[in-house]
Simulated scan of single mutants.
Amino acid sequence: MTSDDGTVDPGVWRALESRATQGAKEARVAVLVQLVPPAGVPEGSGDPGARLTTLERETEELQRDLMEHLDRLGVTSPPRTLALANAVAVELTAEQIRSVAQRPDVRRIVPAEPKHVAT
């Protein structure tokens, strides 16, 4: 069930295996699909709202092909765009993960796990 090129984090495969052993018919796992290149925050001292709008437009353009690919794969959970990271949060099956991992615009697929940051 693994990917040899390192695009898919091993934690993704472990999460899928765990769901499959729990009896899920078609196991899905929440992942972050990180794209290349990372989106950049426009430089300048202009209006922060305008800079954010520019970043969101740039990210939407960078992610358009991936979103269409997810639609063709029949992804049922709505993907969520993460503009600052140029990533997409989505639930995928093993087959869908393999397909997405082969795309040249995908840098990494990692588990979408909540992280606790100690302060």
Rank of each mutant, 00 (worst) to 15 (best):
A118T: 12
V8I: 08
R14C: 02
D105L: 13
G11L: 09
T93M: 06
V31N: 01
L92N: 03
D4Y: 10
L52H: 10
A50I: 07
T7I: 14
R57H: 14
E17P: 00
T119N: 09
I109V: 10
S18L: 15
P104K: 13
H69W: 08
R98L: 10
L35D: 01
L73R: 03
G23V: 09
E26K: 15
A85E: 14
R28F: 05
D47E: 11
I97L: 13
G46V: 04
P10H: 02
V90S: 00
T7R: 07
L62Q: 14
P38K: 11
E91K: 09
V31A: 01
Q102T: 06
G46K: 05
L73K: 04
I97S: 03
P48Q: 13
T59M: 12
A50D: 12
P78H: 09
V33Y: 02
T119Q: 12
A24F: 14
P111Y: 01
M67P: 00
V33W: 01
W13F: 10
V12R: 01
E17Q: 13
L55R: 12
G74C: 06
A85H: 11
V36F: 12
V75E: 01
A30P: 09
R103Y: 04
T76W: 08
L52Y: 14
L84F: 15
V90E: 00
V36L: 15
V8T: 03
H69M: 13
P42S: 10
V29C: 07
R108L: 11
S45A: 14
A101I: 01
E56G: 00
L66M: 10
D47L: 11
A83Y: 10
M1S: 12
A24G: 00
P104R: 13
N86E: 05
R72Y: 03
H116L: 15
A118P: 05
L35W: 06
P42V: 07
L32C: 02
R19C: 06
V106Q: 04
D105Y: 07
A85Q: 12
L16W: 04
A101K: 02
T76L: 14
V12Q: 05
E43W: 09
G6K: 03
V106K: 02
A50M: 11
